[in-house]
Amino acid sequence: MKLLRWLLIPIVPIYDLITRIRNFAYDHNWFKSTSFPLPVIAVGNLSVGGTGKTPMVEYLIRLLRDDFKVATLSRGYGRKTSGFVLANNQSDAITIGDEPFQFYSKYKDVTVAVDEQRVRGISQLLKLSNPPEVIILDDAFQHRKVKAGLYILLTDFNNMYLDDLLLPTGNLREAKKGANRSDLIVVTKCPHELSDIDKKHIVDRINPLPSQKVFFSKIVYADKIIGTNEELSIDQLKSKKFTLVTGIANPEPLIEFLVNKGLEFEHLAFKDHHNYTAEEIANLSGKDLILTTEKDFGRLKGVPQNLYFLPIRIEFDKKELFNESILNKVNLLYRRC
């Protein structure tokens, strides 16, 4: 696969030209970009693959929901429906996508919707009898038909956009210059012990604009796993035979965490957003204990009571400053509306 990607390197300049023309057209108002009369926050990245967008959206939900009526709007990648769909009690990962279903399952006080056309989706949300006051757009950094009030760009510490190449040889969706559209840049999945010198080196490499702020975040795993009917401590897994099932872009941090805990397990890896078949679920049902990610948990509900997930959250090195940056911007946009 890597060889094929390098063989495709002659296509990179063509892809670069197309994306640059597209961005130039939006920058100069040749293509229409729609603004809305409420704070809209766009969370995204420059690269394909997992950079931690879902934990970031959940962090924003928890930060904002006490003061504002919050809605999330996603494309609903992997769903079997189309158009605007508002999450309800009959929704599942098939009808709205795994990540929106996770939002809906955890945050009942938040409106969750999906639409591949974000302008239409926002318009539909604003027509609700109890419309949102803040909308969080998931994976929308390149969706320039919407002009958000705040852009949060994520980049994985282990695969920063600074070191990547454009598609199809690399994983970048657009040129690195696209980072200039962001208000906040968050380096995600950092080591738990990252020195100030290392952080400064990264900031110097990013070379943010005067208007931009750079933050660092890390993944924190829970000390317990959650099943349909019970919870177990991580330490209890030391005496159990279990299977790790992942359908995410990069399971390596999770694998590393479990190995460092001294756990032994079988790992079954599937592609990101994998929709498990009835046959796969039937095969998994024969396992003694299955540990999976929270995102996969919603797609594996056909597995009986031996299914558990490991919750994660993100922590910031400068939590107060990050929260303040978000709240000040949202309050400013809200007053303007």
Rank of each mutant, 00 (worst) to 15 (best):
M1K: 08
M1V: 09
L3F: 12
W6C: 08
W6Q: 09
W6P: 02
L7F: 11
I9A: 14
V12H: 01
Y15L: 01
I18D: 00
F24Q: 13
Y26N: 02
Y26S: 02
D27V: 06
K32A: 13
K32Q: 14
T34L: 01
S35K: 10
L38N: 11
P39M: 03
P39V: 13
A42P: 15
N45V: 14
S47W: 01
G50A: 00
V57D: 00
Y59S: 02
D66N: 15
K69D: 02
S74T: 05
L86G: 09
L86C: 08
A87P: 07
S91I: 09
I94N: 09
D98H: 10
E99K: 09
A113I: 14
E116Y: 07
R118F: 12
G121K: 06
S129R: 12
N130W: 00
P131Y: 08
I136S: 12
D138H: 05
H143Q: 13
R144F: 06
R144H: 11
V146K: 01
V146L: 05
K147H: 15
L150P: 07
L154D: 07
D156M: 06
D156G: 06
N158I: 08
D164H: 03
L167T: 12
P168K: 05
T169F: 01
G170Y: 02
N171S: 12
L172D: 00
E174S: 04
K177E: 12
K177I: 08
A179P: 04
N180Q: 03
D183E: 14
T188W: 07
I197N: 05
D198H: 11
K199A: 10
V203M: 02
D204C: 04
R205M: 07
I206F: 02
L209N: 12
F215Q: 00
F216Y: 03
S217L: 05
Y221F: 08
I226G: 03
G227S: 04
E230H: 07
E231G: 05
S233F: 03
K241W: 04
F242V: 03
L244N: 11
V245Y: 04
G247H: 08
A249D: 14
N250L: 02
L254W: 13
L254P: 11
F257Q: 02
K261R: 14
K261A: 07
L263K: 12
E264T: 10
F265G: 08
L268I: 15
F270E: 07
K271A: 14
K271M: 12
H274N: 09
N275T: 04
T277A: 06
I281S: 07
A282H: 12
N283S: 15
D288A: 14
L289H: 08
L291E: 03
T292K: 03
K301Y: 01
L307I: 07
L307T: 05
F309A: 03
F309V: 01
E315T: 14
K318G: 00
L321W: 06
L321G: 02
L321T: 14
N323L: 00
K329E: 14
C337V: 14
